[in-house]
Design a protein around this nucleic acid. Structure first.
Length: 423
RNA sequence: GGAGAAGUGGCAGAGCGGUUGAAUGCACCGGUCUUGAAAACCGGCAUACUGAGAGGUAUCGGGGGUUCGAAUCCCUCCUUCUCCGCCA
């Protein structure tokens, strides 16, 4: 959620900034400014009535103490109309407050200036591409065929047990999964991220905190009886650790990592997008989350990008880094870099990571602040990234490292798998 | 799941209908003293909104209610603790 103070201070800059997303926010923003103004007017009216009431109450208290019952009763009579006014005004103020809140929820984050304007993924900018497509001198198989051939993943039985999008990993397929998780966590550890095992289910407040609610409601699995949500990413529980927190000084840099399964309903997906491991309802992911001083978030983002590049290079994958255009940017993000690995057998790019800086957008909802030098509280910046999401990495590993008779495990992963080849 | 008890500032802990945004202690910050430190003493020390400011308003787990007035009374939800049951 954007800070109301920011909109108040320069609404035109906000409207202008949002054009990068190819949206015209003039109406909502104007609406916000107007609602905010009438809210403030009504609120100060309400406050002065409340002040009056408080004053009279104190006087009545005093009169009672002095035993002047009659005068007290007279004073009481005066409060009747005030009380009525207060009640009505309170209702108006509450309504305006809710309205303002609803309006603010509708406005996405303002993209940073280097974010390219654009409507869809076609307008994303390739920042760099590392490696070249693998050449095969035999018929390369897509990962779902490899997974079947070597008995690594059982999609059909997953359908029986749960439904489509819930694969069952087995044998070396399961071991590869565990190895990757371990590898990613160890790399994060080396980079100074503290490891967490958070809850896999969160409450509504946490959903709002990181911005999954209210706008991405349909994306999460909802446990109705207990009114809880299965996490779509570890970002939600990890970042919410710091909900309603005021860090005591400005000397901080919080780096967290965690492996969790992620659950996404992915309503509306179909076709080649959902084939094999390309898009699942449940998948594993190691996430990195950072909470930074506003002055340090830019540097942090670079570090995160470099960290992810390192992972992909150690796995020997051909990949590219995209700077998302405004239209492809997530609702809460100010800037996002996507990482895609090239799936040689499918002949397409697969997104394996997304690294974003949210600036104060999440922190504002989370009420995550720090105390500055001048003792004033200020909102922190939050960032996060996948490091990495497993299924498409597995898909790319299987496809890109296949030989005629098996699949080679990258050197860096072998200490974790305990085997160097799947055959 | 059943029965009880409790939730107050960073922590501990008063207050149980009226100048209480909240005693007191500890912690913390600033100062005096000291060669330095400790001790002692003095001062400061919640958050948010609003206002140019003085100030005003709200907040004692969350929400609702009674009252001129609620941290204090009532309802409800949540959480924690103790006992019982169940259980990896």
């Amino acid at each position: 959620m954007l800070e109301i103070t920011r909109i108040r201070a320069d609404k035109d800059a906000v409207i202008e900034g949002l054009k990068t997303r190819m949206i015209d926010a003039t109406e909502v923003v104007n609406n916000i400014v107007a609602t905010d103004e009438s809210w403030r007017a009504k609120k100060s009216e309400l406050d002065s009535i409340a002040a009056e009431m408080n004053k009279i109450s104190k006087e009545i208290g005093m009169l009672f103490k002095e035993g002047k019952r009659d005068e007290a009763d007279a004073a009481k009579a005066k409060t009747a109309t005030l009380k009525e006014n207060e009640k009505n005004l309170k209702a108006e103020v509450d309504a305006l407050e809710n309205e303002l809140q609803e309006l603010l929820y509708q406005v996405p984050n303002v993209p940073q200036s280097i974010v390219p304007a654009g409507k869809s993924e076609e307008d994303n900018v390739t920042v760099e591409e590392i490696g070249t497509p693998v050449q095969f001198n035999f018929d390369a198989l897509p990962h779902w065929e490899l997974a079947d051939k070597f008995g690594l993943i059982d999609f059909e039985t997953g359908v029986k047990v749960t439904g489509a999008g819930f694969p069952i990993y087995k044998g070396k397929g399961a071991k590869l999964q565990r190895a990757l998780i371990n590898f990613f966590l160890m790399e994060a550890d080396k980079a100074g991220y503290e490891e967490f095992i958070p809850p896999h289910v969160v409450n509504e407040a946490s959903g709002y905190g990181t911005g999954q609610l209210p706008d991405k409601e349909g994306q999460m699995y909802h446990v109705g009886v207990d009114d809880l949500y299965l996490i779509p990413t570890a970002e939600v529980p990890l970042t919410n650790i710091y909900r309603d927190v005021i860090l005591p000084n400005e000397d901080f840099s919080i780096k967290m990592t965690g492996y969790t399964p992620c659950f996404r309903r992915e309503a509306g997906s179909y076709g080649k997008d959902v084939r094999g491991l390309n898009r699942l309802h449940q998948f594993d992911k190691v996430e990195i989350v950072r909470i930074e001083h506003p002055n340090n978030s830019e540097k942090a983002l670079v570090e995160m990008v470099d960290h992810i590049k390192g992972l992909l290079e150690k796995l020997g994958l051909h990949y590219r880094v995209l700077r998302l255009c405004g239209g492809d940017l997530g609702f809460t993000s100010a800037i996002t870099y996507d990482f895609e690995v090239y799936s040689a057998a499918q002949g397409r790019w697969l997104e394996v990571s997304s690294v974003s800086c949210f600036e104060t957008f999440q922190a504002n909802r989370l009420k995550l602040r720090f105390k500055g030098e001048d003792k004033k509280t200020q909102l922190c910046h939050t960032l996060n990234g996948s490091a990495l999401a497993l299924p498409r990495i597995v898909a790319a590993l299987l496809e890109n490292h296949q030989t005629e008779d098996g699949i080679m495990i990258p050197e860096a992963l072998r200490p974790f798998t305990g085997f160097d080849k799947i055959d």
